[in-house]
Amino acid sequence: MPEGDTVWRAARDLNAALAGSELIRTDFRVPRFATTDLRGRTVEEVVSRGKHLLIRVAPGESESEGWTIHSHLKMEGLWHVYAWGERWRRPAFKARAVLETAACQAVGFELGILRVFPRSGEEEAVGYLGPDLLGPDWDSGEAVRRLASVPERPVGLALLDQRNLAGIGNVYRCELCFLIGVHPLTPVAQVPDLVRLVDLSKRLLEANKARSRRITTGMSSGRDPLWVYNREKRGCLRCGTRVVHELVGDNELELRDLYFCPHCQPRVE
């Protein structure tokens, strides 16, 4: 499931493959940008911003501004880099973007969001996001302030709100609530230590950003890398109590899977 650490790795790999290279062909397979052609321009860098990925391209000879290829993986998206002649590992009809250089092809499959716009459009696209847990501008104090600004909101929903802090997805929000011993529907105002929660969020994503396997238990060699997420049939990894699985969201259109241990995370009435 793509979360901030997954997108960070995608940006790292794309940056290694594309940065400094000239695009010899671009193919955007969404109607709005199907005629956009960035051939002849050089990729400057690829960066992540929370769960968003930004490929920054230099301006053409007669252009005063560079371009940004903005994608969001949502639930199913991913980027692959292929050497020339290498067979794609996903069906071609699932490709949404193809970027070619003399050395490789970068292909974005099943991207939930794909947009191409002048560089000045980045603020509108991602400027609303809170501090990026894996970004150079990380500000823990601002993240705490944003979380605390709506004290009655359940902490499990506040953590998923990318306007508070950018990069946490469903797996991390469940595991974070477990690790601090708080029921995910506890109002933010009743969370004992928001500073600790934010600090732990940062440390977890930093620890996992370079791993192919997401681990929150600290046991890299074990079969069970998570405490409660997706464990409703196996029980809490700490105490064995049956993990509760619910669908929770701000409204019926935003329901997401929620996992918690009723023993380790008792609900406060």
Rank of each mutant, 00 (worst) to 15 (best):
P2E: 15
E3F: 06
V7D: 15
N15I: 11
A17S: 12
L18S: 13
G20L: 14
T26Q: 11
F28S: 05
P31K: 15
R32C: 10
A34E: 11
L38T: 12
R41Q: 09
R41E: 12
E44V: 09
E44C: 05
V47R: 15
L53V: 11
L54H: 06
L54C: 03
V57S: 11
A58T: 01
E61N: 14
S62L: 13
S62Q: 15
E63Q: 14
S64K: 13
S64F: 02
G66W: 11
L73A: 13
L73G: 04
M75Y: 02
L78Q: 05
W79F: 05
W79R: 01
W84V: 04
W84T: 02
W84Q: 03
G85M: 08
E86W: 05
R87E: 14
R87H: 06
A92D: 06
A92V: 13
A95W: 00
A97Y: 00
A97T: 00
V98H: 01
V98F: 02
V98M: 03
E100T: 13
A102E: 09
A103H: 05
Q105N: 08
F109T: 01
L114V: 01
V116K: 05
F117V: 00
P118F: 01
R119T: 02
G121Q: 01
E122F: 00
E123W: 06
E124C: 00
G127C: 00
L129T: 02
P131I: 04
G135I: 03
P136S: 04
D137P: 03
D137T: 14
E142P: 02
A143K: 06
A143W: 08
L147Q: 08
V150W: 02
L159F: 00
D161L: 04
D161P: 03
Q162A: 05
Q162G: 09
R163S: 14
N164V: 04
V171T: 03
E175C: 06
E175F: 11
L176T: 06
F178N: 04
F178V: 08
I180N: 03
G181A: 03
V182S: 09
L185W: 08
P187A: 12
P187V: 08
V191D: 01
P192S: 06
D193C: 10
D193L: 11
L194V: 08
R196P: 05
L197W: 04
D199M: 03
D199Q: 06
D199F: 04
D199A: 10
S201C: 10
K202S: 07
N208V: 03
R211K: 14
S212H: 10
R214Y: 13
I215A: 02
T216R: 12
M219R: 15
S221A: 14
S221Q: 13
D224C: 10
P225T: 11
L226P: 09
V228S: 07
V228M: 01
G235K: 09
L237D: 09
C239I: 10
V244E: 15
L247D: 08
D250G: 15
N251M: 07
E252I: 06
E254W: 13
R256A: 12
L258G: 07
Y259T: 09
C261D: 10
H263E: 13
C264F: 03
R267C: 08
